[in-house]
């Protein structure tokens, strides 16, 4: 029983972490702060994965999101300094409308989410590495290869976009 209580406590902490950090990303005035909070949200999400028993995905999450993507975003922040803050405007003009639009759906969907019933099966033990690998290199081998092509294309595209024209 104590394990269940521990789980619930962890879940509550992680939820607070994720929601709080995400709200911080949206509301934080300093972009660097936003980026760091985003990394924290990613980290909490990895904790969620662990709570679900998906250690491999959690590891990927830490490596790719908390590591690579956060670093990329931080570079992006650094490369686009905003010296000229002529516009004190932090939010867009459509903010009230957006809030009016998003809040009802968000609340509705969140409440609706609780209606998902548990299948009532026990979590399969032994982590998710073996089943994940079996799937990726079995049924999903071809899409996996295609995904590598997508990455290659994105890499080339990013290089071409950022490359300066040499006169």
């Amino acid at each position: 029983m104590s394990f269940d209580i521990l789980q619930s406590v962890l879940f509550a902490l992680l939820t607070v972490g994720i929601v709080g950090a995400a709200a911080g990303v949206v509301l934080m005035k300093r972009i660097t702060g936003s980026a760091l909070l985003m990394a924290f949200a990613f980290l909490c999400n990895a904790g969620m994965f662990l709570l679900l028993g998906a250690e491999t995905v959690a590891a990927f999450q830490v490596l790719i999101y908390v590591g690579a993507i956060t670093v990329l975003i931080l570079y992006g922040v650094m490369f686009t300094p905003q010296q000229d803050r002529r516009y004190g405007l932090f939010f867009q003009t459509q903010t009230p409308w957006a809030a009016l639009l998003v809040a009802p759906i968000g609340i509705f969907v969140a409440f609706f989410a609780f209606s998902f019933a548990d299948p009532g099966k026990a979590l399969p033990g032994g982590g998710d590495l073996v089943p994940l690998a079996t799937s990726v290199f079995g049924d999903f081998a071809f899409p996996f290869e295609v995904a590598s092509v997508l990455l290659l294309a994105a890499m080339i595209g990013a290089i071409v976009l950022v490359k300066r024209d040499e006169e």
Binding site: Q92, Q94, W97, A98, L101, V102, P104, I105
Partner: peptide, 12 residues
């Protein structure tokens, strides 16, 4: 931003 708004309106 306006286009994104429209997308979300569609979702709504």
């Amino acid at each position: 931003g306006n286009y994104a708004f429209m997308v979300v309106a569609g979702l709504f």
